[in-house]
Design a binder for these strands. Structure first.
Length: 442
RNA sequence: GCCCCGGUAGUGUAGCGGCCUAUCAUCCGAGCCUGUCGAGCUCGGGACUCGGGUCCAAAUCCCGACCGGGGCGCCA
C-alpha cells in the first residue's frame, strides 16, 4: 500500500485522473451488494467516493471487501473510472484494499441510519456523531466565527491575551465557582477574566481580548447553559461611555457574520440556515423602553423587574416584528439589577442607572458589558456595598491607584452566538464535548 | 435550588393492568439480485433501567434509586 502522502481525497478525483491508479482512504459508510456487483460508499474528510466491485473480476476480493463492517477504516487502491451512474460522476474500481481498523457491530450510533438519535446518545458517542457531515459543519462554522472575530479585533488594534484560569478569587457575585486544590492552597476555576482584563487596562495595552474557557458552577440545567463555555472577553480603555463598548460588540458581530457568509456558505447551506447579516447600527433600546414594550404586549412586568427569560424571548419577538431586527442592545440597566456587578460604572447624574447593556440575538442574551468604574474611591465603595473583602482583591484594586484610564468591555458567549446563529435547539450542539451539571464524560 | 415530564432491541419508537410469546422503523445475520445511491424481495435475530411493593395478574399502578428531557430562577 502507498504511503499516506499518496492518498487522494474524494474531491480530488476528476476527469484528469480517469484511467489512473489512485489510493483512497476513509470510512466504509455503506455497502450495497447486488450480487454480481457491489457498491461501497467510502467517506473521507471531503465527501463520498464510490468504490464499485465486480464479482466476476475478482471473486475473492469481492467477497472480502463486501464483508467489511460499515464504519471500518480502509484504504483502497484502484482505477478511476468515469461513470454517469455514480453520484460524483466517478468511481474507483479496486485492485486491492486493506482494513486499517475494523468497526465493531452494532454501532453505538448509526451515522446514516434513517432514524434519529437523542442528543444524549450522540454526545456519549461524539466521535461517531461527528462522522455526520452536518454535525461537523457546526464546528467548521464555529471555527470560521472565531477566525472572523480574531481578524476583526486584530484589525481594530486589540491584542489577544491569555489570563489565568486558576484563580484565587471570583470576579462576579452570583455566579458560583468551582473550587479546586492548588498545591497546598485552595483555588477556583476562573468564571471570567474580568479582573485581569481590567488590570491590563492599567498596563498601557489599552485594547485586549481573550477567547478562553470560563467555568460556572451554576445549577442551571437549560438548553443555553453549560458549566464550561468559551468566553470572548474584550476590554478597551480611554472610552467616553458604554457606547464606545457597544460599537465594538456590534462590530464583532457584523464582521463575523459577514466572514461566515463568505467562508462557510457551504456549511450554512448544509445546515439549512439562511443567515441574515443586519447592518449596524443595531437598535438600542433602554431597559425602561424594553419594559414599556413588554408591558404594551400584555406581559405583566414592572419597572425595576428583571426581564426574565419570558421577557427576553418576548422582546426578541417584538424587535423582530416591529423593528425587523434580530440583534439589538438593551441599554442603561438600572443599578438595582447590577448591584452585584460591583465594577459597573453608574451614571454620575443618576446613580440609579448604569451604562450596562446586553446584546440580544433572537431573544437571547449573548453579550453583556459596559463601562467600568475606574475611580478607586467609587469602586471601593461599590465593593463595600457588596460586603467584599477588599484585602483579597488587593491585586485588582492596586491598579486603580496608579493610573487607571476610563475603560469598559464585555463578555461574549461564543457557543450561545453559534447556537442562535444556526438555530440549534441546545447549546450542547455547539460544543464538541460539553460539560454540564451531569456530564463529565466524554 | 425549584417545578413538570420520561426511561421498551445497537438506534429511534408503539403499547400504559389480562388480548404482550411486546408494535413499527432502522440495524444485524442468511439467501436472491451486474448500476445501487431512502435499493428491492424472502427468511431469521435482538428490548420492557434497577430494587422494593400492590394485585389472582405488572412493560403498564405505587415508592425509592439511578439515568435522561423540558421549564423557571440565574447567566454568556
Amino acid at each position: 500500500m502507498p504511503s499516506w502522502q499518496q492518498i487522494t481525497y474524494s474531491d480530488q478525483i476528476n476527469a484528469d485522473l480517469t484511467g489512473s491508479v489512485v489510493t483512497i482512504g476513509g470510512w466504509v459508510q455503506e455497502t450495497r451488494n447486488l450480487g454480481g456487483i457491489s457498491f461501497i460508499q467510502l467517506r473521507d474528510r471531503k465527501g463520498i467516493i464510490q468504490v464499485t466491485v465486480l464479482k466476476k473480476k475478482d471473486p475473492a476480493l469481492f467477497k472480502d471487501i463486501t464483508a467489511i463492517q460499515r464504519e471500518s477504516v480502509i484504504v483502497v487502491k484502484g482505477v478511476v473510472k468515469e461513470s454517469k451512474e455514480a453520484k460524483k460522476g466517478f468511481e474507483v474500481l479496486p485492485d486491492e484494499f486493506e482494513i486499517l481498523n475494523a468497526a465493531e457491530s452494532p454501532l453505538p450510533l448509526g451515522v446514516i441510519d434513517k432514524v434519529g438519535a437523542d442528543l444524549d446518545t450522540r454526545l456519549n458517542n461524539r466521535f461517531m456523531d461527528l462522522r455526520k457531515e452536518s454535525v461537523r459543519a457546526i464546528f467548521r462554522v464555529r471555527a470560521v466565527t472565531l477566525e472572523g472575530i480574531r481578524e476583526y479585533l486584530s484589525d481594530e488594534g486589540f491584542l489577544e491575551v491569555s489570563t489565568p484560569k486558576i484563580v484565587a478569587a471570583g470576579a462576579e457575585g452570583g455566579a458560583t465557582l468551582f473550587p479546586i486544590k492548588y498545591f497546598d492552597k485552595s483555588a477556583y476555576l476562573a468564571q471570567s477574566p474580568q479582573l485581569y482584563k481590567q488590570n491590563l487596562m492599567a498596563s498601557g495595552v489599552d485594547r485586549v481580548f481573550e477567547i478562553a474557557p470560563a467555568y460556572r458552577a451554576e445549577a442551571s440545567d437549560t438548553v443555553r447553559h453549560i458549566a464550561e463555555f468559551t468566553s470572548l472577553d474584550v476590554e478597551l480603555a480611554f472610552i467616553e461611555s458604554s457606547d464606545d463598548v457597544m460599537n465594538v460588540a456590534e462590530g464583532i458581530v457584523h464582521a463575523s457574520l459577514k466572514h461566515i457568509l463568505k467562508k462557510a456558505g457551504e456549511e450554512l447551506e448544509l445546515l439549512g440556515v439562511d443567515l441574515p447579516v443586519p447592518e449596524p447600527p443595531y437598535p438600542r433600546v433602554t431597559y425602561e423602553e424594553a419594559i414599556d414594550m413588554l408591558h404594551s404586549n400584555d406581559m405583566s412586568i414592572e419597572h425595576g423587574d428583571d426581564l426574565g427569560t419570558e421577557g427576553e424571548k418576548l422582546l426578541g419577538d417584538i424587535m423582530l416584528r416591529e423593528r425587523e431586527s434580530e440583534l439589538y442592545f438593551i441599554t442603561q440597566f438600572p443599578t438595582s439589577l447590577k448591584r452585584g456587578t460591583f465594577y459597573a460604572k453608574r451614571d454620575d447624574r443618576n446613580p440609579e442607572l448604569t451604562g450596562y447593556f446586553d446584546l440580544d440575538y433572537r431573544g437571547q442574551e449573548i453579550v453583556s458589558g459596559g463601562q467600568r468604574e475606574h475611580r478607586y474611591d467609587v469602586l471601593v465603595s461599590q465593593m463595600r456595598e457588596n460586603d467584599m473583602n477588599l484585602q483579597s482583591f488587593e491585586f485588582y484594586l492596586k491598579a486603580f491607584r496608579f493610573g487607571m484610564p476610563p475603560h469598559g468591555g464585555f463578555g461574549f458567549g461564543i457557543e450561545r452566538y453559534v447556537q442562535k446563529m444556526l438555530n440549534l435547539s441546545n447549546i450542547r450542539e455547539a460544543v464538541l464535548y460539553p460539560r454540564d451539571r451531569a456530564r463529565l464524560i466524554p
